[in-house]
Structure formats: C-alpha cells, structure tokens
Design a binder for these strands. Sequence first.
RNA 1: GCGCCCGUAGCUCAGUGGAUAGAGCGUUGGCCUCCGAAGCCAAAGGUCGCAGGUUCGAUUCCUGCCGGGCGCGCCA
Length: 603
Amino acid sequence: MEISSPPEKILAALLRQAITAAYPEEAHHPIFLERPKDPAHGDWTTTWAFHRARTLKQNPRTVAESIVREVTPHPYLHAIEVAGQGFINLYLSPLAKTAILPHILERRHRYGAGQPSSEKILIEFVSANPTGPLHVGHGRGAAYGAALAQLLSFAGHTVTCEYYINDAGRQIDILALSVWLRYLEHFLSLSSLFPPNAYQGDYVRLIAAELKERHGALFVRDPTPHLAQLPPAPLPDRLDPDAVEQREARLDALIALAKQLLGPDHWAILHRLVLESQLADLRADLAEFGVHFDTWFSEQSLYDTGLVARAIEQLQTAGHCYEQDGALWFRATAFGDEKDRVLRRANGSFTYFAADIAYHLNKYERRYTHLINIWGADHHGYAPRLRAALTALGLDANRLEIHLVQFAVLYRGGEKVPMSTRAGQYITLRELRQEVGNDAARIFYLMRKSDQHLDFDLDLAKKQSADNPVYYLQYAHARIASLLREALSLVTDPDPSQALALDQTLAAVDLTPLHTSPSALTLAQHLSLFPSLIQTAAQERAPHHLLLYLKEVAARFHAWYNEERILVPDSALRNARLALARATQHVLTNGLTILGVSAPTRM
RNA sequence: GCGCCCGUAGCUCAGUGGAUAGAGCGUUGGCCUCCGAAGCCAAAGGUCGCAGGUUCGAUUCCUGCCGGGCGCGCCA
C-alpha cells in the first residue's frame, strides 16, 4: 500500500463523505483527526461537531450523531461512535493497523523519509572561536545542530551544515600571543610576564611545545628590554573596572610588542600556525563526535574579499548610518533594536557585528530558502541587531531563524560541576565524550527542548543500567538483532544481501496472525506514525520529539516481546511476528541514525 | 532597569484548546525450566506557581503578580 494513503487519511475521507451527506453546506469545512490520550477513546478522534455546532444551531452531540449515521463501512474502519458531549471516536481494524508493515519492509532505511522538497536550508552551528577546546556547552549546540540537519535532510530538504570561523578578531591575536609567551618560556626566564587575561589552559603550552619542536628558536625574541614601555599591570586582587581596563590595555600593548619584535611575516606565520592547530583540533573533536560540516566559512575571508566594506557601504548608502565620537554607527533603533550599534570603531577597525552583517549578506546571496543559526544562549541580545541590519539591507529577515541553545549544567554525585571559562576551568566536550561515551552524550543533549536549561547527570549517563535512557533504546534494537540471528540460525549478523532477502520475504508474509494481539497491533500502529512524526519534528526544528517517539516505540516493543514469544514453531505465526519485529528494528535504526546515536546489534 | 527561558508527582522532566494530565528515577509488590530481566506488569504519589480574562471547553492562549535561571560591551 502507498504511504500516501495512511489509515487516518482514509478515515478522514469517510468522514468527509458522511459530512457532505449530513450537512451539504459544511462539505468544505476542514476535518482534523487527533490521537486521543486514552486508547479507550478510539484510535483517532475528531472534535468537528464542537466546532460547527454553533453555526449549525444544533448541540454537538446531535451533530456528531447525524454524521456517524452517514458513515459507510470500510475494511479499515472497525467501529465509529459518538462519545461525551460530541466527540466522534474512530476505531481502526487490525487490517488497517498492520498494513504499514510491508511498506516499512520495502522502504527499509528510507522508511519515514519525506518527498524531496524545494527547500534549501543552511544550518550554521557550533562556530566556537578557535581559541581553545570545545566545552560541554558547545557540545549541546553540536548535538542539536547535527541532529536537526539529519532530521531536515531525512524529511526531504536539501541541507548544508556550516561552521563560521572567527579567525579575524582580537581573540586569535590573544591566543597567538599566549602561545608565543609560553613558547618563549622554553628559552627565556619570563616567569611573571604571562598576563592573567591571556589564555591559561594547558593546551596553550602544548601548542607552544609543538611550535618549538617544529620550528626551533625561529620565533625567539626577548621582550624584556621593552617591558618598561608597557602599561603597568594592576595588582591581581584588584577586580574593579579600571583594573580590568588596564589589564586589557596591557594585553593589547603586548600583542603590539609581539608583532613589532617578530615582524609582520613571522607574526603572520605564528598566527596561522596557532589558528590551524586549533582548527585541526576542533575538526577532529567534532568528527569523533559524529558531527560533520560541509563548509567552513572564514571571517577573515569577508575582509579579504572586501565584503565587509561593501556591506557597510550598502547600509550607508541606504541612509541607515551616522558618525559620532569618531565611530560609524548603525541606526538599529529604527528597526526595533533597543540601541544603535557601532560598525566601525573610532580606531578605524570594524566590529564583529560589521563582519557578521557581511557574513549574513553572503548567506542570502547564496540563495537558501531558510537560514538557521544555532547560537549559545549568551548571544541572546544579539539577534535583534542582526535582524535589524538585514532588514535595513532590504532582506527578508523572516528567512533567518535563530535558535538559542541554553547551557547545560553538569552534575556529578548530585553536585553541580563548577564551570568557569576563566583560567581554563571547564569540562571539555572531549572529556565528556571520553567519560560517558558519544551515544550517551548525544542522547542526554537531545533529551530536552533546546531552548530549555539542561541538567546533565554524569553519573546517570555512565550507568549501564535500566535508569539510563540510552540503553533502553539500544537494548530494544539489540534484542531484535539477536532474534533475527536466532531465526536465521546465524552466529553473526546477516550481511546486506541476507538482510534484503529477509525483508523481501517478510514483506510478503500473511499478517492476519497478528490481528488478535492487542500489543502487536499497538506497536504496528505506532510504527505507522513515524513518517508524519518526521515531518512535524522537522518543521518544529525539534529533534527531541523524535527521541521521545523512539522511546515510545521501544516501550511498545518491550511490552509486546514480554507478552508473546516470537520464535514459535508455527511458521505462519512466527513469520508474521518476525515481520513486526524487523519493521520495528528499521524504525529504531532510522531514528537513531538521525539522532547520531549508534544502533548496536549486541550489547 | 530591559530582554529571553522556566514554574506540572518526592526528584528530573514530557505533554496538549478537549474526555480520567503522562514518562523515567525513587518507594512497594509481582514476572526468567522457554527468543537477551540493560526487560515487563501492577500499586502508591498532582490545587499543572497565584489571580483575572478569552472560549461550549484553559494545565495549554492573553494580562497582571509571585518565584527561579540566564543575558545585557566601540568583546568575539
């Protein structure tokens, strides 16, 4: 049977006919079928009678009864009834509930996939500064973005994943300086020079060591004679704004000194080496986590190609800018932002915001139908100004979706794990993956709505037991794999051709033996919801809906499995049950694959 | 101060303009001579933060209040 006519569509058509017969003037009023919470209220229900009762000047119950009287019999419709104040409850026949199984066994890894759509979507996510390892906050963005990309792609859209590399700003200069100073420590005595607001993490020392190994003393210059020119360092215990400002000024002066001592060429080499080292680490980390990007977009390239200057000119030409205190401002307030924003500082350099406008202008020029940005919650105040700038450029800001991913708070032993990006005191994504494994990390990140705070219980994620939701899903999959090995008398999993042959055989099996088993029918019916679930989850950008659905599928499978033995001697019964088990396995595999979680055949 | 997120079972959280509000953990009690017990079945546990409003119907939508979390740069 074709998926274009799932059982609920047939029910809707039957209702349509009945309504046309009972109330010809209502023939075109839409019918919505819902899944009742309580299975005692049917497989599908409609509240149509409530909505039209007033117009029809009849009470809902009467309306519902008039419709039900006109419904014609159909092999998919087991029963129809009026309930409560005017609900129309419909019950599917066992035939309707099992009809999906051959379809699943034919479609296999494509079951649930949507028709190809004309939507071209760009998803930008993670985009963390390449100035240090990814931490657990980035991990959530990575897990969410990757799952969303898979979901949208499976739903039928064309998806591109992009990472925006912030390689142009001061932060990379600070990292380069930090590495250089650690590198110098191998050659000179500079014990008190390393600034408190430079990058403190151990990875900085590692890059420095690597630099020494590959390039020897190439970058050694002694800054000691020049230190007197630098702004003084405030005492460490001073945390007032003046002291903070002084430290920043000193840091900038140190960067300038480094550039001066090394000369433009050597500074550029150092800068590039540091950046490449960090990027290589980011790529490796993400790849190990199963997160892949199609394009890596460099912020610096926006300057190199003159796009930043062009974008700002465009804004100026359109009359949305003004100069004040030597800086160039964008009149963001004219587009709903709470204050105007600087595009070019008094010192002549462009702000990050200016580059970001250029970047998004470029995204629009690449002609996507939807742009999805996944940002950390700390970027929250930033969305209005970006939208304002895009609108000012005459672009449709509605095509840009910004999803803010809230932070994850780690718990260990019931205690919050302290996180501070200062002084390199944070748990990295790599450490998390090593501690709990990729699958558990993925599932825990995706369990909650992305815009909601997440408590990540490290102890629970590591537990190999019932309370860990990771194993619940994987266990169902492995159980089925084990059944299939047993059924085929194999020691190993069936190879692809054996698996295909199995699916073809099972797709042709007579399913009537399942008709008398409520738990089998419930499971089969649940499997039939997968394609529409994919569409709504994709539309709502909500991979966690898929995760909840899969848990439901697993629960129904486990319940059925405990109730009925699958590998029974009666071959007709056994094959029908195997068809259901195998179809369940396909749904689990397809769903877990989208979420980036492995589907093990043994555990 | 302004903005965003949240308030549902002891805990962590789903959920929906509809009928008796769900899951996992925790508690209690059952189920393996038989396909994987990392599983299943059952019991107990609720003023859906409070107060108004819209609606035939509100835990869901709107407004106000109370409580919690986060963010607000000529940083990136």
